[in-house]
């Protein structure tokens, strides 16, 4: 059941992009997402698409996985694109009915909106396919450090995040086990009325909550016995290292920005 969820899952291979510092990957992908909104003509979109494609190729991940990453969102993209097409006006009118119309401007806008979505999803998929969730959490912690000054418990938040990530596979296994046990007792998750199906979740949720609480209690005891007393005065085993490649990636992004703004002038 869960085994089919591949969307955005880390693919453990080695590539230039895999080796980048998660902080530079995180910041650069966020930056790129903002950058996409500055594209304003087909040349600039084509340019960004080309850089995205180049990045994807650098990750050495099969293209199929990017498609898997996009597929769950395809419905929302199409809907947005359609709304964009029928509600924007201007240029030659090809068809209209009441407030709806298909115009040349509408079509162009539709294509742009599609491109925007597509590029943003591709870049965020690059981030998640090449960076283990834990490193993303590390990057978030590192980038949040200035917030310590205003008393945000950054270390606690980071530890919570890391424990949550660590327990996701455990709890997914657990869910699968409980589902199997209840299916063996005749629960049917895939047929029957909506109410019946919602009801069939109860025999899963209750054992899952109980198990999660038991685990949390055990974990708290184990952490205490291992000397955990809260955020401050802890040294860190895991450190992030900024390398030459990260500087190069930033310079590359600056060049892309310059290119984009040049193309905007066309």
């Amino acid at each position: 059941m869960f085994t089919k969820v591949i969307f955005g899952r880390y693919v453990p291979i080695d590539s230039v992009i895999h080796r980048l510092d998660p902080r530079s990957k995180l910041v650069l992908s966020l930056y790129f997402i903002v950058l996409v909104f500055f594209a304003n003509n087909w040349q600039s979109y084509a340019f960004l698409a080309a850089t995205t494609l180049a990045t994807i190729l650098l990750t050495k991940v099969q293209l199929k996985f990017f498609w898997e990453g996009i597929r769950p969102l395809i419905f929302i993209i199409i809907l947005t694109v359609l709304l964009q097409i029928v509600f924007s006006a201007g240029g030659t009118v090809y068809w209209h009915w009441g407030i709806f119309s298909i115009t040349s401007m509408g079509l162009v806008n539709g294509v742009y909106v599609f491109m925007r979505f597509f590029l943003i999803i591709c870049m965020s998929t690059v981030l998640t396919l090449t960076t283990p969730p834990l490193l993303i959490a590390d990057a978030v912690e590192s980038l949040m450090k200035p917030l310590l000054k205003i008393k945000v418990p950054v270390y606690e938040i980071a530890l919570m995040l890391s424990i949550a990530l660590r327990f996701i596979p455990t709890l997914m296994d657990e869910t699968q086990k409980i589902m199997n046990a209840q299916r063996a007792r005749g629960v049917n998750f895939s047929s029957g009325s909506l109410i019946k199906r919602v009801k069939s979740i109860v025999p899963i949720l209750i054992p899952l909550f109980i198990s999660a609480f038991n685990r949390a209690e055990d974990l708290a005891t184990a952490m205490e016995s291992r000397g955990y007393r809260g955020g401050d005065h802890r040294s860190k085993f895991r450190i992030l290292k900024w390398r030459g490649a990260d500087t190069i990636a930033c310079v590359g992004m600056a060049a892309i920005t310059a290119g984009l703004f040049l193309l905007r002038l066309l």
């Binding site: 657990e174 063996a184 007792r185 054992p207 198990s211």
Partner: peptide, 12 residues
């Protein structure tokens, strides 16, 4: 009928 490992986790 299956008695799974640690079957008490199916009680609800």
């Amino acid at each position: 009928g299956i008695v799974f490992q640690f079957p008490e986790s199916q009680l609800f």
